[in-house]
Design a protein around this nucleic acid. Structure first.
Length: 427
RNA sequence: GUGAGCGUAGCUCAGCUGGUGGUAGCACCGGGUUGUGGCCUCGGCGGUCGUGGGUUCAAGUCCCAUCGCUCACCCCA
């Protein structure tokens, strides 16, 4: 048996890469329109960084991280998410002092040791954004609107849900009320919920058991327990979203998995990916910068989008035919003398910026025409003995089948220019 | 970590209650067209039936184990 990739680690083959590039290019373009700058951060960090940011008691930290001792004995971890690393860099380089409000985005792989399933891998890829230093509700709406625009420009139909998780002033009291509610119904909820009510109480609300959901219809809602400040912030965020015409649903049962979230949270949801509903999600994390040792009172908000999930959606919702790679010119040379003449010419054409494919071993013309067709070449330059003796080649338009002679004598640069002109003239 | 389903050619699959793996489709290579692609047609290449054991005269088929994949739970983008 030959060696296979690790479980949950996948090769992205050339055909699929076209979709990935489209997704990434679309998002990057929008990030830039919104004033975001790219930051590249390491994939490996000290384990402590994630333990402190994501939360010691979360599943991610407890049992899903790729952690190991490096050769010095330090515990290091392959990042399970991007926010912690970006904030570490923000703090480490004193970016707050350079610009009061930082808008950053990053793209790359994340690692979580989970059981793979549809839309979920051990190495997966996220595009994520962070805005640090501002907590105006209009910013919350702007960030959500940016995520929404990416969906629009990718042509993906998803739904947007928002919620507020409160802040350290109001959430604890709500948590207590919820725990009291669940423990009063111990016998009526599933084992998972009984466990969650202790480990991560808010999580009971998105239990998949319809029986549990029935029970929670009467449950206290976080939105009824927000302090004045948080309630205000949420109302203004909603008003700003309304102003932009972004359609959303308020879901008081929406909970995020990471401990650091506060106030506004949101998810972009689809029902087309099996159990994986969220293609993007994020929220505010106002205490996190300080918690990681950064400047006090540095609020933050961000979101991450799962690229595997976006690509899956794009492939099934949108069709991907339009993204096929194509070639400007295929050079078919027949016989050693022609191949000799073609080889440097091809290089010059490529230097000039044309996409040129060829067959280096001088196969039959039929075979080379097939290759040209497969490469989706718009033109084929046929260079055989006949043409060569006349100092010419034949340029064939693959779609119309029209052929015209092209003079090859003279300065190579001039010949290239002639060819390039012939090609662009036929567009 | 838990549960279920599935492993036959590069890909998609057929193979019934065990009885010689398929002219199967797609892809690939070549011929029909001495130098012209897509369509058609003819031919060719291609297999430790995931692996190991067991039952049997006989196992792709039944049993056990193991590895892998998929989906779901958990959790999450």
């Amino acid at each position: 048996m030959s060696i296979q990739a690790l479980k949950g680690f996948k090769d992205i083959l050339p055909d699929e890469v076209l979709l990935w590039q489209h997704v990434e290019a679309t998002a990057r373009n929008i990030f830039h329109r919104f004033g975001f700058a790219e930051i590249k951060v390491p994939i490996l960090e000290k384990t402590e960084l994630f333990a402190r940011s994501i939360g010691e008691a979360t599943d991610i930290v407890e049992k899903e991280m790729y952690s190991f001792s490096d050769r010095n004995g330090d515990s290091v971890t392959m990042r399970p998410e991007g926010t912690a690393s970006v904030l570490r860099a923000f703090i480490e380089h004193g970016l707050a002092a350079k610009l009061p409000v930082q808008r950053l985005y990053t793209v790359g792989p994340m690692f979580r040791h989970e059981r793979p399933q549809k839309g979920r891998l051990r190495q997966f890829h996220q595009m994520s954004v962070e805005v640090l230093g501002l907590d105006h509700p209009r910013l919350d709406a702007e960030v959500i609107a940016m995520a929404w625009l990416i969906m629009e420009e990718l042509g993906l139909s998803v739904s947007l849900q928002i919620n507020s998780l409160g802040c350290p002033a109001c959430r604890p009291a709500y948590k207590e009320a919820l725990v009291a509610f669940v423990s009063a119904r111990q016998g009526q909820v599933c084992e998972d919920c009984q466990r969650r009510s202790v480990s991560n109480p808010l999580r009971v609300l998105d239990c998949k058991s319809s029986h549990c959901q029935e029970q929670y219809k009467e449950a206290p809602l976080i939105l009824d327990h927000l302090c004045q400040h948080c309630a205000d912030h949420f109302a203004k965020t909603r008003a700003s979203l309304d102003q932009l015409g972004i359609p959303y649903g308020v879901n008081a049962f929406m909970v995020r998995g990471l401990d650091y979230y506060t106030r506004t949270t949101f998810e972009l949801l689809t029902d087309a990916l099996g159990a994986q509903a969220a293609v993007g999600a994020g929220g505010r994390y106002d205490g996190l910068v300080e918690q990681l040792g950064g400047p006090k009172n540095t609020p933050g908000i961000g979101f991450a989008m799962g690229m595997e999930r976006l690509v899956l959606l794009l492939a099934q919702q949108n069709g991907a035919e339009a993204l096929a790679a194509k070639t400007d010119l295929f050079v078919a040379a027949l016989g050693e003398a022609a191949v000799q003449a073609a080889f440097p010419l091809i290089h010059l054409l490529r230097r000039q910026g044309l996409q040129v494919a060829t067959d280096l071993e001088g196969k039959s013309l039929k075979s080379q025409m097939k290759q040209a067709d497969r490469a989706k070449a718009r033109f084929t330059l046929i260079l055989g003995e006949e043409e060569l003796s006349k100092g010419e080649a034949v340029l064939r338009d693959m779609a119309s089948k029209e052929q015209q002679p092209v003079r090859l004598v003279g300065e190579p640069e001039a010949v290239c220019a002639l060819l390039a002109a012939a090609i662009s003239g036929n567009e």
